[in-house]
């Protein structure tokens, strides 16, 4: 499965088009991490636990999108976009969507 966020797959030609695929996940923060983060909030700096949490969640959303693409018989997803929205205090939805396509390699001349 090749993933890109541009309109094509470099070095490949799109031969079939399967439409929109998407994946999402809603994650809540760990209470312990939240307390730690609130102390970090006083002095600033990176909140590594949140970075990691959001990174993992985004990977889950991406995986779900890829699974959907595989089910249609696609071998690539192009034009991928990510979106984040805060559902409530302490929970966030991470969303990934793209276009499932079948591509083939452009032959050497």
């Amino acid at each position: 499965m090749i993933l890109t966020n541009i309109e094509s797959v470099p070095g490949h030609r799109v031969v079939e088009h399967y439409g929109l695929v998407q994946g999402s996940t809603v994650r809540a923060k760990h209470v312990g991490k939240d307390i730690l983060a609130s102390f970090k909030n006083l002095v600033g700096g990176e909140l590594a636990s949140y970075t990691e949490l959001l990174n993992e969640s985004r990977a889950v959303a991406e995986k779900r999108m890829v699974e959907q693409a595989q089910a249609t018989g696609a071998n690539a997803v192009i034009n991928i976009r990510f979106s984040t929205s805060s559902i409530s205090q302490g929970a966030a939805e991470l969303f990934a969507y793209g276009t499932a396509v079948k591509v083939e390699k452009i032959p050497w001349k």
Partner: peptide, 26 residues
Amino acid sequence: DKKTQFDGAGTQGRLFVGNVVISGDY
């Protein structure tokens, strides 16, 4: 840019994601 100009044979492309959460201070 998102133009489809990388269609030469053998060209490869892959998605890369980087993220960070940075907190403000008091």
